[in-house]
């Protein structure tokens, strides 16, 4: 396990980048996923079809393929995903604002892919909201969007929070692919670099390196899991 201490800066930097990538992708996935879920339950058939197609597509192709479409496809279309160079945010997440687009591409690929699963988790949450809630909302004259926004989605979110958490945890682990898709410096790829290419000619054995990588992921996923448990417990208390 010496590798963790000897190469601590490598793991620390890798962790910080993976954390940033996961954080921003989670926000993206939740936003896109909610939008797709709304499409899927929309009363307008073409929108419903669009939402269903989205889920069927992104849920059923490998994440690597999504990455290729984004990482190779967007430049073909002449895009560097500059819309993600969000002023202010790029001060905190400096990789967002740089010329190289692969951090932004990775966020897009992870968000698009994970959104399909977010949508399904949300939909299960929406189904868990008793139909009387939406009916009561309609009966006081809320429109479809108001109904979703003020009545159904807030409750669906609560019912969906645990499955959503699992989706986000899976996404954090999936983020490891980014290191093979243009992004330099995420946790798992920097760790593997210690094994295959080494530092100043010194290479490290696989097992300790991967233990260190796993620790980095656990730091992100375990607290998230605990938080979910707490939210779930709180919710049960409230419902009683």
């Amino acid at each position: 396990m010496n590798v963790l201490w000897e190469q601590f800066p490598v793991f620390r930097d890798g962790f910080l980048l993976t954390f940033q990538l996961s954080f921003l992708s989670a926000i993206g996935a939740l936003l896109v996923g909610t939008l797709v879920a709304v499409l899927r339950i929309s009363p307008v058939p073409p929108l419903r079809w669009l939402g269903t197609s989205y889920v069927n597509l992104f849920r059923n192709i490998p994440l690597t393929a999504v990455f290729v479409f984004v990482v190779v496809g967007l430049p073909l279309l002449g895009s560097s995903a500059d819309f993600l160079k969000i002023p202010g945010l790029d001060q905190i997440f400096t990789r967002l604002g740089i010329d190289l687009p692969y951090f932004r591409f990775s966020i897009i690929a992870l968000s698009l892919y994970t959104a399909a699963f977010v949508c399904e988790a949300l939909r299960s949450g929406i189904n868990a909201v008793p139909s009387g809630q939406a009916e009561a909302a309609r009966s006081i004259g809320l429109t479809f969007t108001q109904n979703l926004r003020f009545i159904v989605l807030p409750q669906a979110w609560r019912a969906a929070i645990v499955p959503l958490g699992s989706v986000i945890i899976a996404m954090i682990k999936n983020s490891a692919i980014a290191g093979f898709m243009g992004l330099y410096g995420d946790l798992s790829s920097r760790g593997q670099e210690l094994v295959s290419a080494g530092v100043n000619g010194v290479t490290y054995p696989l097992i300790p390196v991967f233990i260190a990588i796993s620790l980095g992921f656990l730091i992100m996923t375990v607290p998230l899991g605990l938080l979910l448990d707490r939210i779930e417990k709180n919710r049960m208390v409230k419902a009683r």
Binding site: V71, V72, T94, R95, I98, D99, L100, Y102, G179, F180, M181, G182, L183, Y184, G185, S189
Partner: peptide, 12 residues
Amino acid sequence: ATQLVLFGGYAE
């Protein structure tokens, strides 16, 4: 961070 790009293969 601003100069290095790494892929799984050279084709990319």
